[in-house]
């Protein structure tokens, strides 16, 4: 049994994984008025994690990403339901969303919508489901 040398793959992964995570955040943020959104952002983050898993192995990635991806599914669903149930506080129907204009120090005046929170819930759920499926299939050897 020879031992393969994965130097090029590992160096490329450590560069590309950050580009993928940045692109995933961009897709999540741009989903309001461009293509993208929580679903594609979650899939992009999952593909960045899969790339790390492919080049470093399960044991190493478990040390640097100590997340049980199964717990992400209920967390994401709770965020999504919470944004829907939060509309009861303001005495409006379920899943009513609103938006407002805020002035932040770096970005200037931006439009923040509560649909963003729902999208983050979708993002976390999709990430958890995808990573759970892939890791469960990869684990049986």
């Amino acid at each position: 049994m020879y031992k393969p040398n994965d130097l090029i793959l590992r160096t490329t992964t450590s560069l590309i994984a950050f580009i993928l995570l940045g692109f995933a955040i961009y897709l999540l943020m741009a989903g309001h008025n461009s293509p993208g959104g929580g679903f594609v952002g979650g899939l992009m983050t999952a593909s960045a994690f899969v790339l790390m898993y492919m080049s470093y192995g399960i044991e190493t990635v478990k040390k640097i990403l100590p997340i049980n991806f199964r717990t992400l599914i209920p967390i994401g669903l709770l965020i999504a339901v919470g944004t829907g149930a939060g509309s009861f506080i303001f005495d409006v129907p379920f899943l009513s969303h609103t938006f407002g204009y805020f002035t932040l120090p770096i970005f200037g005046e931006i439009e923040l919508a509560t649909a963003m929170l729902f999208d983050i819930g979708v993002y976390v759920t999709v990430l958890g489901v995808t990573m759970t499926i892939i890791l469960s299939i990869a684990n049986d050897q």
């Binding site: 790339l51 492919m54 470093y56 192995g57 399960i58 044991e59 190493t60 892939i134 050897q141």
Partner: peptide, 21 residues
């Protein structure tokens, strides 16, 4: 890129995500 990497790893090693490298 990720798909080609997975195919290459499968052809090389037989597993795509291995337990410990």
């Amino acid at each position: 890129f990720i798909g080609t990497l997975a195919i290459a790893k499968f052809l090389e090693k037989g597993v795509i995500i291995d337990r410990n490298v």
